[in-house]
Each structure stands twice: as structure tokens, then as C-alpha cells.
Write a protein that binds this DNA or RNA. Structure first.
Lengths: 124, 124
DNA sequence: GTAGATGCAAACGCTTTGCCGCTTA
DNA sequence: TAAGCGGCAAAGCGTTTGCATCTAC
């Protein structure tokens, strides 16, 4: 993959974020460094970075897709209802190992948990 | 809210489903009973039924919004990766009561859990 | 020098809205 | 009969694509 100032700015904004970013957020943050940054460039760069394994998509219920660095590992997210920001969490309170079969015959491979509430700044 | 055959068919298809349905699924199922059922009618009926408290939206990560009867109570969903169907689950393996404060100062009000894997039919 | 990347604008797909004729109460 | 509803088509809006230009390698 070719190194350009646009992609550097895009990947940099994702890496330096406190949680996963939406396309609009990436465009806003990277756009501070690259004036006239096209939204299509963001979409294309995000797609390329995903295929390259640099970043992963984070889909949260009822939210537009967000993206974060791929090397973070299994974790979940906290979504602040006051400010709308999404944060990474370290905890995983879901005790369902891969391969578990639930009543009804559902074989679990994976799970996604999102917590909702108020972040420290908004709670104050 | 006025009683029409379209809305009866739409609410009926949601109530009789084995899990939450997408707009397209509702349109397909209700459309079997009501030929020429417009997609806009489905959107408008779903919106009205939501405001009326009859149904609730079910947002799953990376999926289009789905809708199910409102009187089902707290539960989670299982998403089959093979057939794409979503099913209601009875279990809730998340031990985080409302009001819990997580490291980082996040106050939890609510949570959403989605399990992924294969349903009984697809596993066979 | 050339394949790949960018910016712009048009195309696209899903959702919403406007309009007008029809239906329910 | 009158307010609400349904069907159709157009408008919106976020995402994707085409194309000509530019740039990293």
C-alpha cells in the first residue's frame, strides 16, 4: 500500500483516538491536517486499511460503523448517551466461551457487548 | 391509531416472527397478504407502531434495524452467520447491574449483547 | 515512467416526504 | 363526511464509483 499524507493523517487520527471513530469523525480530524481532504478518500483509505489489516470495523447497535486500530484485541465499548462518544473498555463480563451451545441449539462463535450510560466527564 | 388491513398485516408479521424483523422482511411477509403493499407504508406503520409503544427497534451491530413486539422484556439476540436470521434468546449472561461504575468513571445504565454463530438448522 | 491515489461530481441504494385518491370510524 | 392512511413518485442523504489529474515509488 502506497504511503501518502492523506493516509498517514487518516491512520494517525484513528491510532491517536480514545475510541473507535466514525467516517465523519475521521474526516473531521484528518481534515484539520489536510485541507480539501475528500470524503471519498476517507472511505477508500478506510477500506484499504481494513483489507490491509491495519484497522478493524467496530459496529455498535444503532450507530454508524466506526474504525479502530486492529492490534487492540478482544474488548468491548462504552457509549456515552450524553456526548455520543464511544470509548474502549478493558473488561469482558461475558462468560460464554467459543463453542458453547445454548438452549435452542445455537452454537456460539463470538459475541458483541456494548454498554450504555454516561462517561466521567458527562456524569460530573 | 386507525385500524387498517395493512397495519394489521404488518403488526401480525412482527408478532408471529421467531425474532426481530427488518423492514425488508416485514415488507415481504406482510406483502404476501397485501399485494401492492408499498414500502413507504411499512416505514410509516413501523414508525407509528413504535410511537404507539406496540413495537421496539432492535439494533444489532452491523445490521439494518429490526423490529419486534414491545412486550417481550429484557433479552438478547443470536445472529446466525450462515442464514442471517436473528433469534430471540432468553439468557442474559451479563452481570452488570444498572448504576455500576467501571474503571475509567463510566456509569452503566444499560447494555446490549449480541451472540454470533450458527443456529440449529444451519449447524446440522 | 507508471501504477496507484486523490478530488470532484455523478451514480446508487435505502429512507423519507409530498401529493392526491381512498378508507376507516 | 372528514381526518387519517396508502400508493406512487420524487426528494434526501450517506456511500460508492468514474474519470481526469497528480504523486509516490
Amino acid at each position: 500500500m502506497r504511503q501518502t499524507k492523506q493516509r498517514n493523517a487518516i491512520l494517525g487520527s484513528i491510532r491517536s483516538a480514545e475510541g473507535p471513530l466514525s467516517i465523519a469523525q475521521i474526516h473531521g480530524r484528518a481534515g484539520e491536517k489536510i485541507p480539501r481532504l475528500g470524503i471519498a478518500t476517507v472511505y477508500r483509505a478506510v477500506k484499504a486499511l481494513r483489507e490491509d489489516g491495519e484497522i478493524v470495523a467496530v459496529d455498535l447497535p444503532g450507530e454508524e460503523p466506526r474504525y479502530e486500530a486492529a492490534d487492540i484485541g478482544h474488548h468491548h465499548h462504552f457509549c456515552c448517551r450524553a456526548c455520543g462518544q464511544t470509548y474502549d473498555l478493558g473488561v469482558c463480563p461475558v462468560g460464554i466461551p467459543r463453542g458453547t451451545m445454548l438452549p435452542g441449539g445455537y452454537t456460539v462463535e463470538d459475541h458483541s457487548l456494548t454498554l450504555y450510560g454516561r462517561c466521567a466527564a458527562c456524569e460530573a
